[in-house]
Structure formats: C-alpha cells, structure tokens
Design a protein around this nucleic acid. Structure first.
Lengths: 135, 135
DNA sequence: ATTGACCTTATAGCGACTATATAGTTTTAA
DNA sequence: TTAAAACTATATAGTCGCTATAAGGTCAAT
C-alpha cells in the first residue's frame, strides 16, 4: 500500500504521515525501487492509534510515551494510567480557566448596549479601565 | 522610561514589548542617542490594554481590530460588540469540546484498574480498539 | 507525446511568544 | 579606576502540530 492509500484509509493527509515518520512516531516503511513508500497493515493500525490519541488531544510526546509502554508489554501499566490521569486534570483545568474567562467576557459585554459611539462604548472602556480581575 | 521599566510596570518581558512593536501593536517609541527606546505614559496604557486583551484571550489580530475602532471614536460600536460576541461563542464552543473530551477520557480511564500488565491494560486496549466516538 | 494523478524532498508559514547568540552601554562596587 | 553586573540592541531559531508551497521524478492512460 502506498502513502495515498494509507492516508485515505485513516483519514489523514499524506504530509502528516511523512511528518509523523520524521518525528519517529511512525516506523519508516519499506521503499519501492522508485523510492515510493510501501506500507503494511501494521502501519495502518499504528497510524490509526496515533490519530485516536490526537482526537483525545494527547501531545505527540505523550503518544511517544505510550508507544514506549506498548513496547514493554509485561511491565505494570501504572504509568499509562498516570499519563491519562495527568491529561484528564490538564483538560479539567483548561475547562475551569475557560469558564472563568467566559464569565469575565459576558460581564464585559453587558457593559454596552450596542449602537453607542465607539468613544462611549462600555466594552472598550471596560478593557481600558483595567477593571479586570486576573484569572 | 526605558524598556525594562515599561516591562516591569506592566508585567511583561522586554522581548514581548519589542515583539508587539514589530507586529505594529505598540507604536515605535522615541530613541535615545545610544539607540535605547524611550517610552511615555501613553505606551504604558497601550501596553496594559494589549495585556488585558490577551488575558481575555483575544488574538493579536483582534486587538489590532479593536485598535482600529478606537481610532474612529465617533463610529457606532456595533463592531466592537460583535467582535466580543464572536469571541464569547468561540470560548463557549471550546468549553463544549473540552467537556466532551473529558467525558471520553474519563470513560477510557475507567477501563483499567491500575496494576495490570501493560499488555492487559484496558486504557491502551480502549485506544487501540478504536472504540471511540468522534467528538 | 502529453496530460494528469501520484510520488519525492526541502523549505517556509501559522500564533504568540521565548530563548539564544552576539555585541554595545550604563551603572555599581571593589 | 577598573571590572563586573545589569541593562540595552539586533538577529535568529525554537516551540507545537501540522499545512502549504516549490520543484521535481514516476506512472498509467489517452
């Protein structure tokens, strides 16, 4: 299977595949005489795994780490769970920060009832005054 | 006032100040004979405004846009409010996406009760299987 | 013979900084 | 007074995860 077919079957751009290879995330495939990359089913699985990790918003570094755990299948999986726990708390703190931000933005927005002159706009005034609490 | 003092009074790195200048966000200050930048109170206010916008997670492009509105103080401020409304809905959709992600991660995490072998780890199995719903 | 679809590498761009290298200037302390 | 520390300047590269572009080689069909 060539790169275009792999790309299509996993739903990824060919550039992204070459990028993952350069990053050491996807093992270098064989080559045809003309230099074209040749992939196997293993590559399909591996690439799909990477993509599912990315959907979970794991970083490439974290995916690397997971790969290292997979390569030592008889070790305890504590580290895998720890990685996930860390990631979950990361996501949760992002949510918390964004919720605080939303609140701030909504209260700023409430300072202006449209159609004033820019000069009198409560929103701009609100930002300029610095009547903002640090998050 | 020199760059270091400006940096300290607003709580920004000097590099960031020079970066904002290059981006056209902060007007180029005067220079001493030795080439050192000399800032005024206007620069302090302007930089503080930029920082408060950044705390609200507005992009540099959005801050540019706000600046253009400020430069036309007699226009209607509808566009200012629209910018903020757009930003609020952007933040809200980020929150929604992250909440869905959190849910997915938590359910994945529930598939493993620590201390198994990596080989039998429900978390890794869960990612590999592809038993994931697209967000 | 040429078009078009595919493949190759190399390089630059995104956003908002941050870090590093190299050098000149000013201030402070021994 | 001199030497070190602290400040300033510019230019350039790195971060992250791609995405885009350029410039070319390969292959099948028309």
């Amino acid at each position: 299977m060539r790169i275009g077919q792999l790309a299509q079957s996993v739903g990824v751009d060919t550039q992204t595949i070459r990028f993952y290879e350069r990053q050491g995330l996807l093992p270098p495939p064989g080559r045809q005489e003309n230099g074209y990359r040749v992939y196997t089913e293993k590559h399909v699985e591996r690439l799909a795994f990477i993509r599912r990790c990315r959907i979970l918003d794991l970083s490439l570094a974290e995916i690397h780490e997971l790969k290292r755990y997979q390569d030592a299948p008889h070790q305890s999986c504590t580290a895998v769970n720890a990685l996930l726990d860390d990631h979950i708390s990361h996501v949760r703190s992002q949510i918390t920060a964004l919720q605080a931000l939303e609140k701030q933005l909504v209260s700023l927005r409430a300072r202006c009832n449209d159609d004033r002159e820019v000069k009198a706009c409560g929103v701009l005034a609100g930002i300029s005054e610095g009547s903002m609490h640090q998050q």
